[in-house]
Nucleic acid binder design. Structure first.
Lengths: 245, 245
DNA sequence: TCAGGCGATGCTGTGCACAACAAAGTAGCT
DNA sequence: AGCTACTTTGTTGTGCACAGCATCGCCTGA
């Protein structure tokens, strides 16, 4: 599939963007879990390019805080500590509210249909609570909400911070510290509430709802980690490290 | 000087950081004005390295929105439109206040002495209003204020946005649309006011003062641009474009 | 048996030559 | 004279071979 899509990208810039989005997606969807070592050679062969253009993508991802390259050792998917994650979440709370306060714009027809489609997808999630599918819908919904503001710098940094925390959420889900069905129901309520606010054109209210749900989601994650530590007795390190082979 | 400092950076990572900081500084201090074309070959020779490691720096700077590379044409210093600049400034206002609200920390002895030194430097600025020197002090002061919060993601994005707007401010100064002496006096008052707030330990007040001054500074810039357009009659394009050669 | 050094191995980092590409200049045709 | 097509030139993008570096395993000596 990856090599096949290469034919659709004649110029270098589009190919770079595709590789970047693909690798970022794999990292955020935990296909490449935190701590995993990536091989430039292997990745280059998989995408049918040389190491040189691939390294350009890796440098970008390193600048976004998703990767870290060490000479003589390898390129690793970054892992974040719980403290920094909490800081990031507190900042994301403020930015979420800013989305409804700075340069808000009413959704157009295309965005509306996208929201409705997302509502349907999230509803179908209740019957089939697949973690990866869940994370994908969550990501798409977040990116759709971002289009409710015209403030491009705000969108940039919000997106940047989201991709930095998204995988942490999915990791908590996969670690079975949170009940998937319940999480799906809560997420559906979030989507419905936000869409209700959007229907009456109250973008600030929508952003406040989103902010509230981000806050509650983070608290559920914190509770899940604490519960697991109390129950299993495993160290925090064992939870964070995800070694391959 | 640049080749000489190379000896002090044995490993690749430090050299990368140095090159990155140096080029970013040159861009923000308008040594490389917006629209200017940079030659990879020339830069590589100046720093005594090959194009390959230099390109890594350029890719990073492109990710930060300071450069843009186009195949077959060249690498250009980006220019920002007035609309996006206004959005960025509105966002920076909010982030400045967040600095005093999210994880604030009292300055330690080292930071205090740095603030005092900055106050002295800014005071000396009144007698010698050199634009570049002014910009350097402004940058150092902003970075020092950023150390008043422990929230690292907030520091990252604030710094990111600052470096994206700093050169715009300096450009307005250099275009003689703003009175340098008056600007220096205003800046000294900002420094004094913020230091007064810091002395009584009111970090939130300090951040509010900073926010107010950022807002007023932007308004002075807007006014300066408007005045220039009314007086000279030059198009907005002529103000933004800075051609070399 | 254990400790220390030392070489093998594999990774990222670097330099160089060439390809892809765009823009400017130029010659030739109308 | 004006326009078109081609050539020339300079730039960024790519591929490849090698250097620098860290880690692991082995080997040697006490």
């Amino acid at each position: 599939m990856n090599i096949g899509t290469k034919l659709n990208t004649p110029n270098a810039r589009d190919r770079f963007e595709r590789l970047h989005a693909e690798l970022r997606s794999r990292i955020c969807l935990l296909d490449y879990p935190p701590g995993m070592r990536l091989s430039e050679q292997t990745l280059a062969e998989e995408f049918g390019v040389s190491r040189t253009p691939l390294r350009r993508v890796l440098v970008r991802l390193e600048g976004e805080g998703l990767l870290q390259s060490v000479q003589g050792v390898g390129t690793f998917v970054t892992d974040v500590e719980i403290e920094e994650m909490e800081q990031t979440y507190r900042l994301r709370l403020e930015l979420a509210e800013l989305t409804g306060r700075l340069d808000p714009v009413q959704p157009d027809a295309a965005l509306w249909s996208e929201f409705l489609e997302l509502a349907a997808r999230s509803h179908a999630l209740i019957g089939d609570p697949d973690p990866r599918h869940f994370a994908q819908i969550n990501m798409d919904f977040f990116l759709a909400l971002l289009r409710l503001t015209e403030n491009e710098p705000l969108r940039d940094i919000s997106e940047r911070l989201y991709f930095r925390t998204a995988r942490i959420w999915l990791k908590s889900i996969k670690a079975s510290t949170i009940d998937m069905s319940e999480e799906a129901i809560v997420f559906n309520r979030e989507v419905d509430d936000i869409l209700t606010a959007l229907k009456v054109g109250d973008l600030h209210a929508a952003s406040l709802i989103q902010r509230a749900h981000i806050s509650m989601s983070f608290n559920r994650m914190l509770k899940g980690v604490t519960t697991r530590q109390e129950a299993g007795g495993g160290s925090t390190k064992s939870v964070q490290v995800s070694e391959k082979s």
